[in-house]
Design a protein around this nucleic acid. Structure first.
Lengths: 139, 139
DNA sequence: AATATTTTGCAACAAAGTTGCATTGTTGTA
DNA sequence: TACAACAATGCAACTTTGTTGCAAAATATT
């Protein structure tokens, strides 16, 4: 586990620090997406708020995590698949946000459909975000 | 124009006030989506910040405008089509955010494709947000 | 092990959003 | 049109969220 974490950091030419190891393992452990606030709650005693901001920013730049747009002013982050290189994200999967429990999932099974845009519009990034009820909250 | 504005407000059982008329006409005039900041810039002399927050919130609840998720912690708002009822938004069109000029468009011509989710997941709202270069910024 | 480089924490700040309450504006009714 | 009932606004104070510069600490390099 710790080996995997340090390997990822080294692969992206980042120095191995406590903050980065901790935050990266949080993503691995939960499996789902995390907002800045989630991480702050789970590690506020260990690290300064500023460190979390900077670490997340670094991870996004390096292609370790990607952002998921939301309608509630709380951007979430999730681990990228291996194909993501620095600055070039390829997260063509659907994101699902549960209205009940708030969990954000990466639905890898479904890929984002290609969309034909009007003349003059060219797409760089496409985000498909679905909200509703997840498989844990359905009854 | 003013008639149309007041008609919309009355239709949603809202009292006709200066702030609501002004903010609603801003949406009609620009045609595109607006962030809270945009509205504040264009009417900060006329209204208090708090009034803008509350007005936008009211409009969303009543189904007059809907939110557009973004990755930069700045939710945008756009006019709903007639089908939107209070609390039940049906905005199955694509949103486009230009990386150059920042303008957010509702692309009505394209509708959001239906997506098959894994077992146990049920969709209530689907947002397809595309970013790239718009038809005014291409050269 | 010593130095160069990077990262972190702190402090101070800026921006964004919220809440309570008195004042003002709007609506419906007589 | 005037009045009472109600809703919306502005103000102030506050909380939360995000940013920046710089010294101290940790990490990497030789």
């Amino acid at each position: 586990m710790q080996d995997k974490i340090t390997a990822i950091l080294r692969k992206h030419q980042l120095s191995i620090t406590e903050a980065r190891k901790k935050i990266l393992s949080l993503f691995w452990e939960t499996g789902n997406a995390l907002a800045h606030g989630d991480i702050e709650q789970k590690s506020s005693e260990d690290f300064d708020r500023v460190t979390i901001y900077r670490t997340l920013q670094t991870f996004v730049e390096k292609g370790i995590i990607h952002t998921i747009p939301t309608s509630d002013n709380s951007v979430r982050y999730a681990l990228c698949k291996d194909e993501c290189a620095a600055g070039h994200h390829h997260d063509d999967h659907v994101h699902f946000i549960c209205d009940d429990c708030g969990t954000t999932y990466c639905i890898d099974e479904v890929s984002v459909p290609k969309v034909k845009l009007p003349k003059g519009f060219s797409a760089i990034q496409t985000d498909l975000v679905i909200s509703g009820t997840c498989n844990k909250c359905e009854q």
